[in-house]
Nucleic acid binder design. Structure first.
Ligand SMILES: [Mn+2]
Ligand SMILES: [Mn+2]
Ligand SMILES: [Mn+2]
Ligand SMILES: [Mn+2]
Lengths: 218, 218
DNA sequence: ATAATTATTTAGATTAGTCTAAAAATATAT
DNA sequence: ATATATTTTTAGACTAATCTAAATAATTAT
């Protein structure tokens, strides 16, 4: 039996190894899990004993195939629940992440299969992230961070890198949502802040905002 | 913060004190929780320290008002989730209880409020049990156990006392569900087994079945 | 009223997950 | 190449929830 904590560590390892090197550092994992490095070491050991992870002392951790399968399944559940909350229960995209962190641990294959059917096999969650299919396959679409976008080009907003309510509410306040048209007007060399036209309205966003908004060239 | 285990003990105390004496025995609680009496004692102490329960050594345990409020809220969540699973996700009444045991612990007021709205404020769960409203009020309807029913009277099936899949599947196999018409034909004095006509079909049920089926006089 | 039985509590361990502080390994800078 | 800094692991302790075995209280039977 896999515990809730193990599931969360596995998911964290998965996400970290997608956005950085394949091998995940103990400190990075501890940071992501809001624990201390010593706790992360203990858990890495445990995951490795259970064959969810590959571990060599001082060399970081990677997931085994089993571990990856588990991670993807949790992510699938997380994102399907997010869709459910937004589409069926009147939640907004800034309200669902924390709750999905709870719901993703509910154990029932039939539940998730039926939820998927009930929602019409959605392909993306409310933040633009792809939903793995029943076989764990994930379809990635090309996307660019606003921080990497080119001046004078038109983009459409297709996702966020940070699903925290704080960031999403910032976007709400500036009328930016999935599908919004974003035009890059000017990049300020001094602090890399960016002048954009979002849905026709002028707006200046900081680098840290720009690093969390995904666009697609139009 | 209240733990999942605390919630389950509180719920068990609530159910036990509804069906027997107000004061719940340590052994009865341990039995219901599938633990040992010593574990129950420890938990009772903890609940009492947190003011969810009243406890006097050797005298059993009762819930405080706070404890009752918590119990009723968990039961509300449990039953709303059961309705959701049956009404929206194609589950049958014998498939939902265990899963609802997981879902009842999800913490989000908005989730449960919205689920209630989404389901159209259902008053009863798939097993005929009343769903407490937002204020914790429970409307009980009069019902008789089949084991207490009178010969030659016509009843309608309004609930079950045992929500286990085993019992519900037994009912499925005999075409009995909520709303089924049950006529009591004869009670065998030897073993108290009962001859009934269920939806027009003759059937003999044992005492232990009869003690788990709730009826309403027609 | 004693004795026997049953119920309950206590004592002491165990496991999962966490922590702090110290030790050891690795990486970086001079 | 050696010293310094950083990262990681180990050692030892804590809490929540559990267990077994033993002790004590309450109940029931004689
Ligand atoms: Mn999320
Ligand atoms: Mn998401
Ligand atoms: Mn149930
Ligand atoms: Mn029910």
């Amino acid at each position: 039996m896999i515990t809730l904590t193990e599931e969360n560590y596995i998911k964290a390892i998965y996400h970290l190894s997608k956005q950085g090197a394949e091998n995940v550092n103990t400190n990075a994992l501890a940071e992501a899990m809001n624990t201390k490095a010593s706790s992360a070491t203990d858990m890495i050991r445990k995951l490795s004993e259970k064959d969810y992870a590959n571990y060599k002392k001082y060399k970081g951790v990677t997931l085994t195939e089993t571990g990856k399968r588990i991670a993807i399944n949790i992510i699938r559940k997380h994102r399907l629940w997010e869709v459910f909350l937004v589409e069926k229960l009147n939640f907004t995209w800034d309200e669902v992440h924390e709750l999905a962190e709870q719901l993703e641990h509910i154990k029932s294959q039939k539940l998730i299969d039926e939820l998927d059917i009930f929602l019409g096999h959605p392909t993306h969650d409310p933040h633009g992230d792809p939903i793995p299919n029943k076989d764990g396959e994930i379809t990635y679409v090309e996307k660019t961070l606003l921080s990497q976008a080119q001046v004078n080009l038109r983009y459409s907003c297709v996702g966020v890198n940070d699903s925290s309510s704080e960031f999403l509410q910032y976007l709400n306040n500036n009328n930016i949502s999935l599908g919004s048209i974003i035009e890059v007007m000017h990049i300020e060399p001094f602090d890399k802040s960016i002048n954009i036209k979002a849905n026709g309205k002028l707006l200046t966003v900081s680098q840290s905002v720009a690093k969390n908004l995904y666009l697609k060239k139009l």
